Amino acid sequence: MISYLSGTIKHKGPNYLIVLTNNAVGYKVFVPTDILTSTPPLSAEASAKADISLYTFTYVKEDALDLYGFPAQDDLTMFELLIGVSGIGPKTALSIFSNGKLPKIKEAIVKGDVSFFTSVPRLGTKNAQKIIIELRPKLGSLGLLDLTGETGETKEIIEALKTFGFSTNEAKDALKSIKDLEGTTSDKIRQALKYLGRKT
């Protein structure tokens, strides 16, 4: 299994790159649209300077062995979560990344934004709902959910935890442990306190 690639871009396709590694082997890697648009146009002179490093997922089935590449480990983690949802294949998951970067995907999951996912070609309402239902509880436990901004409910939880003598950093750390994102603010405070209690 190939988990990481580093080399120079030798070719850009409509949804993939060919990356030439130091050992002169070229790998075809499917990538999100933003990677394709952010890399410079290739020429004989420029290709030697078009360096790229990607975290990769190797997809194996009877008639294919494909690589999917992402600029950061968190992107790859989200991709793996998406293809873990029944009915979501790697090409659909990649199209989700082309529809929006990681923060936008996380926001759509947390807010239950079905329309974000149904705007992806060949992704219907039922599968969009499955993504939200199955992945929303997982984001916090994996540290992918950004709940550290001090606005709205998050600020209320942080202030409540501070009244118990915890620092702002401790409170923000505890926010990442919250798994029941559907619960009330009081429920989330109790979850955070339980987490902090185990650390003391």
Rank of each mutant, 00 (worst) to 15 (best):
G7H: 08
H11E: 15
T21R: 10
F30C: 01
F30P: 00
V31R: 01
I35M: 01
I35D: 00
S38L: 05
T39Q: 10
A44W: 12
A44N: 14
K49M: 06
A50F: 00
A50Y: 01
I52G: 06
L54H: 08
L65Y: 14
L67P: 09
L67V: 11
Y68C: 09
L76C: 04
L81N: 08
L81E: 04
I96V: 15
S98Q: 07
V120N: 00
P121Q: 09
G124V: 07
A128W: 02
K130W: 05
I131M: 06
I131L: 04
I132K: 04
E134M: 05
E134I: 02
L135T: 06
L135H: 10
L142M: 15
L142C: 04
L145D: 09
G149D: 13
T151W: 03
T154W: 07
T154S: 14
T154Q: 14
I157E: 03
I157Q: 04
E159N: 14
K162V: 08
T163I: 10
F164E: 01
F166Q: 01
N169D: 12
A171F: 04
A171K: 05
D173S: 13
D173E: 13
D180W: 02
T184R: 06
T184V: 06
K188L: 04
L193M: 10
L193V: 11
K194F: 10
Y195M: 11
G197C: 12
R198H: 12
T200V: 12
